[in-house]
């Protein structure tokens, strides 16, 4: 079962990588230089890490049947906040200043996630609409923090988060690995995963079984905000600056795409963190590939569009029914047969 689910995403990833290998034979080669490992594969992991982080949070939100459009804005806000507080410090490279900045940024991102969760779980606004608010206002807030400029900081300690390396590998890879493990433990070693899937699949039945669905939603949106926050730190520290206008632009869409490619349904229920990981890597590899081939990178968008459509069609019951011939209709599956029949 496990194999089967990850089979197609993995195949796509392998095919992409093989294509690269054929196109440029030294694609897989990894060189050691100044005690760091260099190579395209490492680059994919390194550049893909913010996306993977955001996608991990998004997976859990989507599993509850929701969606978070505001992650891109949260990425921008946290990056801006961290850079602002470092730039205000007397010693930009001071450990206290850097840790303080990281702390403030993370608390802020969790708070923003909580705000989304509050609108969805307490006020009862549809997730897509509730998170649209922060998506719109968030970029403004980020620019407000940076005062419309690009804040540049001079802090090797801060830079280490996104551009440093540990044990010859980029440090960001460790952060992503840690978050992935935390998310997996949180959902599989506590009961949270079970509750998320239950709430996403059947809210009514879950409530009657005693699951506190509101708390689950709050937690999940908060976690998603936190993931976006960490991604914001990675991005801004990588370039030692914060750009409120462009940081994390379109991240929400890439993250949703990664989740969907990974096999988690947009309608909620079962979720697959490993699938999301593969999905995010596919997107990053695709970008790298297109760069390598020399096609303008913007054309990735066309490919993404086709992927979104293909994945959604495959997930659509009706489309599969069309492929198989006549859709099966039982008395119980077609709770609303009139709606489907006369479509």
């Amino acid at each position: 079962m496990m194999k089967h689910r990850l089979f197609w995403p993995l195949m796509v990833l392998v095919v992409l990588l093989l294509f690269n290998l054929i196109y440029s034979p030294d694609f897989f080669s990894i060189k050691m230089r100044d005690g760091h490992l260099y190579g395209s594969l490492i680059d994919i992991l390194n550049f893909g890490s913010p996306l993977i982080l955001v996608a991990i949070g998004m997976t859990l939100v989507i599993a509850t049947g929701g969606i978070d459009l505001s992650v891109g804005s949260v990425v921008a806000i946290t990056g801006a906040m961290a850079c602002l507080s470092i730039s205000r410090a007397n010693d930009q490279n001071g450990l206290v200043a850097v840790l303080g900045a990281v702390g403030i940024a993370l608390v802020l991102s969790a708070a923003l996630g909580l705000w989304n969760g509050f609108l969805v779980a307490r006020i009862g606004i549809q997730p897509i609409i509730a998170t649209l608010i922060l998506m719109v206002a968030g970029r403004g807030i980020a620019q407000l923090i940076t005062n419309g400029q690009i804040i540049t900081v001079l802090s090797p300690k801060y830079q280490y988060i996104g551009a440093g390396s540990l044990l010859t590998l980029p440090f960001s890879i460790f952060i992503v690995a840690a978050m992935f493990v935390i998310a997996s433990l949180l959902t599989r070693k506590t009961a949270l995963g079970l509750f998320i899937e239950a709430v996403g699949c059947k809210p009514t039945a879950s409530r009657l079984a005693g699951v506190r669905s509101r708390t689950v939603m709050l937690a999940v949106y908060m976690f998603c905000g936190l993931c976006a926050g960490i991604a914001g730190l990675l991005l801004s520290s990588n370039v030692s600056s914060a750009d409120g206008n462009n940081a994390g632009l379109w991240y929400e869409l890439d993250a949703i795409l990664a989740v969907v490619i990974g096999g988690t349904s947009l309608t909620g229920g079962r979720f697959y963190l490993a699938g999301t990981l593969v999905g995010a890597l596919i997107i990053q590899t695709l970008t790298t590939t297109i760069y390598m081939v020399g096609v303008p990178p913007e054309i990735t968008l066309v490919v993404k569009a086709l992927v979104v459509l293909a994945v959604c069609l495959v997930q659509s019951e009706k489309f599969r029914g069309l492929l198989r011939g006549r859709p099966k209709a039982g008395p119980l599956q077609t709770a609303n047969p009139e709606v489907k029949r006369h479509a």
Partner: peptide, 29 residues
């Protein structure tokens, strides 16, 4: 169908759901 079973989950998960819900998140069975 609508207020009882959680379709996507296994028999095991459906059985433990209510007990787990009353135990809370962290005391996972």
């Amino acid at each position: 169908k609508t207020e009882g079973i959680i379709d996507d989950l296994t028999v095991r998960e459906n059985i433990v759901l209510a007990l787990q819900a009353s135990k809370g998140w962290f005391r996972r069975i």
